[in-house]
Simulated scan of single mutants.
Amino acid sequence: MINEKTIEKWLLDEDMLREMKFDENADFHFIIEFPKDNIIDIVKPKQKDCIVFACATQVSQEHINLMVSADLKTKKDFILELNFGLNNFLVDYELQIHDEMLQQFIITDQIFEDGLTKDNFIKTIKRVFKSKLHCIWLIEKKFNNPSFSPIK
């Protein structure tokens, strides 16, 4: 049995909990911030023995502007490279693409009840975030943003 109070305690212990959200399709739904200014949803769907981690990201106008000016081959190579990269993170994802340009991406992962430990829980949050970061960095790298540096 996945215990909501245990999950809430872990999130509070790590100072990640931003809010609890009502969701009629879930036993509980937490909005967390990890790291600062990055939002991830953590949901325990009703009638399921798992927790789902989800991070939806709208591609910024700055990044869309970089993609618009690229040639078709560069755009297609980017989507292929993005798919390969995300597969390496062992997460589930959905890419919303329009005119060969990434518009939005949703990264999800889940932990089933029998694998739920605090260690696995925190590692899953980090994996989802790093998958998102991979997408953003790859846009910057592939479309040659002159001000891009992954080290800040």
Rank of each mutant, 00 (worst) to 15 (best):
I2K: 09
I2A: 14
K5S: 14
T6E: 15
L11S: 03
L11P: 00
D13S: 12
E14P: 00
E14R: 01
D15W: 02
D15V: 08
D15C: 06
M16N: 06
L17S: 08
R18A: 13
R18I: 08
R18W: 10
E19I: 01
M20V: 11
F22G: 03
F22L: 12
N25L: 15
A26Y: 08
A26L: 10
F28C: 01
F28P: 11
H29Q: 14
H29T: 06
F30G: 03
F30R: 06
F30Q: 06
I31D: 05
I32A: 11
I32M: 09
E33K: 10
E33R: 03
K36S: 11
D37H: 00
N38W: 11
D41M: 06
D41A: 04
V43P: 02
K44Q: 14
P45E: 13
K46R: 11
Q47V: 04
Q47H: 03
K48E: 05
K48I: 04
D49F: 04
I51F: 04
V52W: 03
V52H: 10
V52T: 13
F53E: 05
F53Y: 11
F53N: 07
A54Q: 13
A56L: 10
T57Q: 04
T57N: 08
Q58Y: 04
Q58L: 14
S60V: 13
S60K: 08
Q61R: 09
E62F: 14
H63Y: 12
H63G: 00
I64Q: 07
N65C: 09
L66F: 15
L66K: 11
M67H: 05
V68K: 13
S69M: 08
S69T: 13
L72E: 15
K73Y: 07
K73T: 14
K75D: 03
K75E: 11
K76V: 09
K76I: 10
D77Q: 15
D77S: 09
D77L: 12
F78N: 05
F78W: 02
L80Y: 09
L80V: 10
E81M: 01
L82I: 07
F84H: 10
F84A: 09
G85R: 07
N87E: 13
N87I: 02
N88V: 00
F89A: 04
V91T: 12
Y93F: 15
Y93L: 10
E94Y: 10
L95F: 14
I97T: 05
H98A: 13
D99E: 13
D99A: 07
M101R: 09
L102I: 13
Q104Y: 12
F105K: 06
F105T: 09
I106L: 11
T108R: 14
T108E: 05
D109I: 00
Q110Y: 12
I111M: 02
G115W: 03
L116D: 02
L116Q: 00
T117G: 06
D119F: 07
N120V: 00
N120D: 11
N120M: 01
N120F: 00
F121G: 08
I122T: 03
K123R: 12
K123Q: 11
T124K: 11
I125P: 01
I125R: 01
K126N: 06
K126W: 03
K126S: 01
V128C: 01
F129T: 02
K130W: 02
K130Q: 07
K132D: 08
C135F: 00
C135D: 03
L138V: 01
I139G: 02
K141H: 07
K141S: 04
K142C: 05
K142W: 01
K142V: 01
N144C: 10
N145Q: 04
P146Y: 05
